[in-house]
Nucleic acid binder design. Structure first.
Lengths: 364, 364
DNA sequence: CTGTTAGCGCCTTCAG
DNA sequence: CTGAAGGCGCTAACAG
């Protein structure tokens, strides 16, 4: 993989030597400070001097060293850290994109790190970003223990939690209206005649699923369903696992006639399971089991999947805005932003109870 | 939507004051350098001293200042910059994820910036990252002019191009086997009896599309098609535009019987166009127009869409690896990594010529 | 308008 | 094994 250099050995292993501000100043025949003023667009420099410095900088190919500048300024860098679950997951990358968009034009840069939902990795990454002296930290917390974050908050670092709040610290937070979303999903299914409704979720350790589960059970109970958690399953960490859970649910003696899937990955798994069930021709018309998924996804419209949607990028934007607001005013009260959800009916949730079981509200 | 928590207005507007190494040293009763040695796991420190320093650091909540450390070390920071088109696009976020994965464990951090495919923004972001003194730069170039990058390369900064090569600079590059992929797609369609095949692409300015287009035309020409670019369209910057192009193509007197879509967004648009065409029940069985898309996507299997796939995350990994290799050996010859593609047949590309036009290889 | 003097927090010699 | 000095590249006071 590594061959020898041919031709003139060009770049000697020198570690990227660059012209310094001092060099520019010397070339322009001015003091360091004056050069600094020019390159930072500060006032109080004669036009002629300014031009000389600029010319010198240009001819030397000068590039300001932001690292040194931040250090000298004594504060945090113009970097915002984002500790997330997994950049490959569209939800997280949408959030990242939203954060970046909000930072844009303010001279702030985004530095991301994926924890893979591993609490220990999350801690390590947070630590690394703090060492890098980020000016703010946005976190999608996986763990329940945030001692490090508490220290930082106390030290005055803006910390914003996204998607999941933390019990042990008081920080600005952006979450989805999980309960409202699930309530809408379940109500929708109930309105279409379903009484045996299942829920497939990921980790019961995660706050989001806890919320979704509770709202699910409450809504069913409120509708007079006697055994609301009868068809609740958790631990579907990936699409394949979700698929297995759905298969299992549908194989029951009295299988659910409708399903709620707690996130995009699970919805995918469920769709696969349902497809296999109806055979190759998996059109919405032929689906016997109703489905409402949490999280919207591209092509859901083509597949005719009813979902609970929300704006993930907006969550990122709001998170970044909260961080900026706190940086500007450390004393402001912490804020909780709840991003609304909307039920998008596309067919899969509107399938009515029918067929084999012939159940027509005979239960409950 | 936005509630306020109250609580005692705690943090006064101080700019995050932190314990320094000097403070740790003093607390432990040792010199700065000794404390430094301990916290950097350097040898030549008595076990007892080491323990004292560690205790002091812990009790003070000391956190190494990576910014100052990098400055003092005089070199680049342990940051890798990634200038990409748009993090919200799954292709780019997959690449980002791959880069991050490769950096992981080496103490390197990823800092990403989205150009939105705007050359000027790309230039500005590149500049910013350089000012931040990133240790390496990975770029998905949108522009054709890379003067800034050339300077950096000359200065010894590892620069890796991903997805699109640059003519004006010599840098390590990772690309997809675009020609091979398109060749496979077109051959597949030809083998299924199609002679009138269309291509919908994005920007003819982009190298990737140029490659795909040329391979498309060549392959058709090689098969004896007289007018290979008859159904070629470009300028489909988003899914909606792509949809319009497809509608237009299919409205021709002699419409194409098969389509190749040049990227994931265009495939989505085309699917919508085809769905609208066949009415609500858009099952693969009923699709009259064959389709092969470049870029695989989630649920493509459920939708039965035949695609040219490849491993985007792998591209990121390879790019990061190239950057690391060059950092280790600046003199090594530049390398071109071509990531292979594979045709994944799922039904939409296997639709045969038939129906209204009744064309049975009568043309050409 | 311009320059001088001190650091920012840490690491790197090079002596003890 | 340990420490003292010097400096990374830049900015922030204060002078002139």
């Amino acid at each position: 993989m590594t061959h020898d250099t041919h031709g003139p050995v060009a770049t000697p292993p020198r570690p990227v030597r660059r012209p310094t501000l001092a060099a520019v100043a010397e070339r322009a025949g001015v003091s360091l400070k004056t050069a600094s003023r020019v390159l930072n667009d500060e006032p109080n420099v004669a036009t002629a001097t300014r031009a000389r410095v600029q010319a010198a900088a240009l001819s030397l190919g000068f590039r300001r060293n932001a690292v040194a500048a931040d250090l000298a300024r004594g504060g945090a860098s113009r970097l915002v850290g984002f500790v997330t679950g997994d950049l490959a997951n569209p939800f997280y990358s949408a959030v990242a994109s939203g954060i970046e968009r909000e930072l844009r034009g303010r001279g702030l840069q985004l530095i991301t790190a994926s924890s893979d939902e591993d609490p220990e990795r999350e801690r390590a990454l947070t630590e690394e970003l703090i060492e890098r002296r980020v000016g703010a930290l946005v976190v999608t917390p996986t763990s329940h223990e945030h001692a490090a974050l508490r220290d930082e908050l106390a030290a005055g670092l803006p910390v914003v939690l996204v998607d999941r709040p933390a019990r042990d610290i008081e920080a600005d937070t952006v979450v989805i209206d999980n309960r409202g979303g699930v309530r809408a999903a379940v109500s929708h299914l109930l309105a279409h005649g379903h009484r045996r409704i299942g829920l497939v979720g990921d980790e019961s350790r995660l706050w989001t699923f806890q919320e979704r589960r509770e709202a699910f059970v409450e809504t069913l109970a409120g509708a007079g369903i006697t055994d609301p958690d009868r068809y609740v399953r958790d631990g579907a960490h990936d699409a394949d696992r979700a698929r297995a859970f759905v298969d299992e649910l549908l194989a029951l003696d009295q299988p659910p006639t409708a399903l709620v899937t707690a996130n995009n990955k699970i919805t995918v798994g469920a769709l696969h399971a349902l497809r296999d069930r109806t055979g190759a021709a998996s059109d919405r018309q032929e689906r016997s089991v109703a489905l409402v998924g949490f999280d919207d996804f591209e092509l859901a419209d083509l597949l005719g999947v009813t979902v609970v949607g929300y704006d993930a990028a907006e969550m990122g934007r709001r998170a970044a805005a909260l961080a900026l607001a706190r940086a500007a005013d450390p004393g402001r009260p912490t804020q909780l932003v709840v991003v609304p959800t909307r039920l998008v009916a596309r067919g899969s949730g509107e399938v009515r109870t029918s067929g084999s079981s012939g159940a027509r509200r005979t239960d409950a």
